[in-house]
């Protein structure tokens, strides 16, 4: 599936290994959170990078203690309307200080891309046949953000312009 990064289709170095299938040791892979919980010892001493995929009902706190083991956290959107991932990503960044890749997987539309970036996502798995222009445009079409987030840490952001009034 096309991977969107920085507004462009990029190379995906990662692959998701479904539960039950053998995990290759020589390349970056993503496993499910459930598999991580059940087989975590088997990943001791692994050299290749490891990523974990969280269902939308699994919140940031569930993986917080293990974050140093993962170079990537993939957050699932079962439906694009299910916005829990926006909070999970933000908690991973701001509450737990996670600096690795955060990827949106599942059902996400370009109209959400700006929100994803602003809440700390670094990449998005888009559906086959997606229109790359829509993703590129999504980062450019709205240039005003009224509140602070991951991309703008100034206190209260744009409200500060009101200091100039009068």
């Amino acid at each position: 599936m096309p991977l969107i990064e920085n507004g462009r289709i990029g190379e995906d170095a990662w692959s998701f290994i479904p539960d039950g299938e053998p995990v290759p040791n020589d390349r970056p892979v993503i496993i499910s959170f459930e598999r991580w919980q059940a087989e975590r010892d088997s990943f001791e001493g692994r050299n290749a990078r490891l990523g974990v995929r969280l269902k939308s009902g699994t919140l940031a706190g569930a993986i917080a203690a293990d974050l140093d083991r993962f170079s990537l956290v993939a957050l699932e959107f079962p439906k694009f309307r299910d916005g829990r991932g926006f909070s999970t990503a933000r908690e991973l960044r701001e509450r737990y200080g996670y600096t690795g890749e955060i990827r949106a997987v599942g059902h996400v539309i370009p109209d959400q891309y700006l929100f994803l970036v602003r809440t700390g996502f670094t990449s998005v798995e888009a559906p086959e046949g997606t229109n790359p222009d829509s993703w590129a445009n999504a980062l450019k079409e709205i240039t005003i953000a009224f509140q602070p987030s991951l991309d703008d840490t100034a206190p209260l952001s744009l409200l500060r312009r009101k200091l100039k009034v009068g």
């Binding site: 694009f80 309307r81 299910d82 916005g83 926006f86 909070s87 933000r90 959400q112 700006l114 929100f115 994803l116 602003r118 809440t119 709205i142 953000a145 009224f146 509140q147 987030s149």
Partner: peptide
């Protein structure tokens, strides 16, 4: 307005 985290509540 267009709160990035709270638009798909």
């Amino acid at each position: 307005t267009m709160h990035p985290e709270f638009t798909y509540l």
